[in-house]
Amino acid sequence: MGFLPFVKLGLVANGIIFGSVIALGAIGLTLVYGILKLGNFAHGDYMAFGAYVAFYIVDGLLPRAGIEGAGLGPFTFGFPVLIALPLSAIVVALGAIALDLLIYRRLRQRGASTAILMMASLGVAIAIRGLVQLIWSGDTQHYPRESRQVYHLPMDVRIPPDGLFVAIVAVILVAGVYMLLTYTKIGKAMRATSDNPSLALVTGINTKHVVWWTWGIGGALAAIAGVLLAVVQAQLLPIMGWKFLIPLFAAVILGGIGNPYGALIGALVVGVSMEVSTQWINPSYKPAVAFAIMIGVLLARPHGIFGDSQ
């Protein structure tokens, strides 16, 4: 590669894998942010909850039906994870909608400020984490796994097969979201509501449905992102979601709030930067790198890399 010859390509590849997990979370977060004007501090914990729901399915539910396994093909995880992935997405999607009906809808109807909405989401975040710890304890867990060889590519690039799986799932889902937003009536209505909520209201757009779809999609993507994160990190921890908030928000702000395509690019930029930074600095600083990118963007282009720099 001619450009940046000093950057290790393997780190770039890891960054893309990590970035695609961020992307799944960030797309949901930016949709909720744009459409409901809510910076959802519980989004990371929706992810963690999704990962744990899948863990319960894989570890508790399916074995009772005699379905068990690890080491499916080249992957460390087994077939049960593939079953748990959509189920967990549905559970979290419904949960996100239920929380809206229970909490956020009431606040919106009262005309509560964004700060109050965000405060409530912080409460939700804390409560979810407490619940996860209460049910599954604060200890490290993992999906049943068998170790696998990594793929060796030229130029010293090594990719774990799990990483490939994560990237492929992310690509499929991102394409699905793109189709939905571009070609379906509800998807266009979501974009319209994000663009201009009060105009959407007087245009006759059924904002109630838009809200449900937004939480449904955001919740489902978050759950899948959580499962994939647990797969690539080979562990589950209750705090995994809260720790993920900084890269998530960095990606959203980078791409411009409410812009799902921007969030995708932002996520890849953040993911690759975080991984590549480990070439020079201590890997545990990765969240700080995401934070630094976010501050840098706010200084240079306050409305995101694609927004107007007003």
Binding site: R106, M119, A120, V124, I126
Partner: peptide, 20 residues
């Protein structure tokens, strides 16, 4: 501690809903 964490979250949400 997990239960207390849960309760703090519930407390914040409840207060936001009833008495911001």
């Amino acid at each position: 501690p997990s239960f207390r964490l849960l309760m703090i979250g519930v407390l914040i949400v409840t207060i936001m809903l009833l008495r911001p």
